[in-house]
Computed example of a mutant assay.
Amino acid sequence: MEKAVRTAALVLYLWTVFVQFSRTSGLGINELLYFRVISPDDIRYIFSAAPAKDFGGQFTSSYDEIFLVPADPADGCSDLTNSEIFQGQVILVERGGCSFVQKARHVEEAGGKAVLIADNAVDNDSQFLDMVNDGSTARPSIPALFLLGRDGMMIRRSLQRQALPWAVISIPVNVSSLASFPLKQPPWTLW
Rank of each mutant, 00 (worst) to 15 (best):
M1T: 09
E2M: 04
V5S: 02
T16R: 10
V19T: 09
V19C: 05
F21I: 02
T24F: 11
S25T: 14
E31Y: 06
L32V: 13
L33Q: 12
V37Y: 03
V37Q: 04
S39G: 05
Y45I: 00
Y45C: 00
F47Q: 03
A49Q: 03
P51C: 02
K53G: 01
F55A: 06
Q58I: 03
D64K: 06
D64C: 01
I66P: 00
I66H: 00
L68H: 00
P70I: 01
P73V: 00
G76Q: 01
N82M: 03
E84Y: 05
F86N: 03
Q89G: 02
V90E: 01
V90W: 00
I91S: 05
L92W: 01
L92A: 05
E94A: 12
C98S: 05
S99F: 09
V107S: 09
G111I: 05
V122H: 07
V122Y: 10
N124F: 12
D125K: 13
S126R: 14
Q127A: 14
L129V: 09
R139Q: 15
P143W: 13
A144S: 15
G149K: 10
D151C: 09
M154Y: 05
R161K: 13
L164T: 01
P165H: 08
W166A: 14
A167D: 07
S170H: 09
S170R: 10
P172K: 11
S176H: 15
L178T: 15
L178N: 15
A179N: 15
S180K: 11
K184A: 12
Q185S: 14
Q185Y: 11
Q185M: 15
